[in-house]
């Protein structure tokens, strides 16, 4: 008989749970129902009252670690908090969001408890037991795995489950005491990339990916990097889309070529870059080869604009491919969007 614990944490406001945490709650409820297992939810927040109230309708046992030391993500405090929650719940299966906060500590906590951890889980299945789906080799190989050892920590990728939502109600929360080690790390805050333009928007519905073609010579034999930059930023402004880039484009900074100044390695999609989740994706001036497309694994509806009718996107990797000059198309798209706004 498994005992399931879902670990959750508060967002930047300190009181509400993150969306990814609520998604893990849904996964926990589903799994508990299927396995007929007991369900507990652990909360890490400066004050867990509001979060607990939001979880009241889960009818799960609610545990919390609260207080100032847990206001901010930090390895030593978070590890101690999660360890205490897991011990209190006597959990055999621990579900948690693969957030930066929990991804930092989950492995260490699993080790402290003599358990095991698997991360970036995209699905939990199995008939009698628990089987987890995750990707290897940069989203190129998909595996389903299982473990005999317990406790087993499963960190769920964001967007794989619907976020839990239930009517808030007063809830009984068991406060779990934590023995903290001496603190040697202070979190001083968050910093946005220095370029000033925030182009990465994980919650956006649309991902816009710029490929190296934007800074290559165009049909007139000239490079139009400044114009490319204006078109891309203009599009992001009107649509609120998140900006991704191919590796070759972000790498250009080192070679003295014209580059798009607002791009950093954080924008990179695929290869050594991110694999974000968005409902739609639009690729421009990117060839659509395997290393590019691995970062698109979790983009549901994909379109591309490319001059080459035989580019990778046309071969089952995108839903629609427009054979056209992205400069011309995007200029028109921007003017249509602006007209629509006005």
């Amino acid at each position: 008989m498994e005992t399931i614990l879902v670990l959750t944490h508060a967002d930047e406001t300190g009181s509400a749970l993150t969306k990814a945490s609520l998604e893990a709650v849904t996964a926990g409820k589903e799994l508990a129902a299927r396995l007929n297992a007991s369900l507990a939810i652990g909360i890490v927040a400066i004050d867990a009252t509001a979060a607990a109230s939001a979880l009241a309708s889960t009818v799960a046992r609610l545990l919390a670690v609260s207080g100032e030391p847990f206001a901010q993500p930090r390895y030593s405090t978070d590890a101690a908090a999660l360890e205490a929650l897991c011990r209190a719940a006597e959990a055999s299966i621990v579900l948690a969001p693969a957030s930066a906060r929990f991804a930092r500590v989950a492995a260490g906590v699993a080790h402290r408890l003599g358990g095991f951890v698997d991360t970036h889980i995209t699905a939990i299945g199995g008939t009698d037991g628990v089987e987890a789906t995750r990707w290897f080799y940069r989203q190129r190989v998909e595996a389903v795995l299982s473990r005999d050892g317990r406790p087993w920590f499963l960190l769920l990728d964001a967007g794989t489950h619907a976020a839990f939502a239930g009517p808030p109600a007063p809830a009984q929360v068991e406060q779990v005491a934590v023995e903290l080690p001496a603190l040697r790390t202070t979190v001083t805050g968050l910093r946005a990339p220095s370029q000033g333009t925030q182009t990465i928007r994980p919650d956006a519905k649309l991902l816009f990916v710029a490929g190296a073609g934007w800074t290559k010579k165009q049909s007139d034999g000239q490079v139009h990097a400044a114009e490319a930059g204006d078109l891309i930023l203009g599009f992001l402004r009107t649509t609120g889309a998140s900006l991704g880039s191919s590796k070759s484009l972000v790498d250009q900074g080192g070679e003295g070529q014209p580059v798009l100044p607002f791009l950093t390695h954080l924008n990179q999609i695929g290869q050594t870059g991110a694999t974000p989740r968005h409902a739609r994706g639009l690729s421009t001036c990117c060839h659509g080869e395997e290393p590019h497309v691995v970062g698109w694994r979790f983009i549901a509806d994909r379109r591309a604009i490319n001059l080459d009718p035989n580019c990778g996107w046309t071969r089952g990797k995108a839903d629609v491919v427009y054979i056209a000059d992205a400069f011309q198309v995007m200029a028109k798209v921007n003017s249509l969007l602006e007209a629509k706004k006005a």
Binding site: E142, A143, V144, S146, G316, V321
Partner: peptide, 21 residues
Amino acid sequence: NGLRYVSVALPKQQRTTRVVK
């Protein structure tokens, strides 16, 4: 360490691409 692989495979998803020329 008790880790078992149930399946390991390449993703099969191939989309039906509409190429607009």
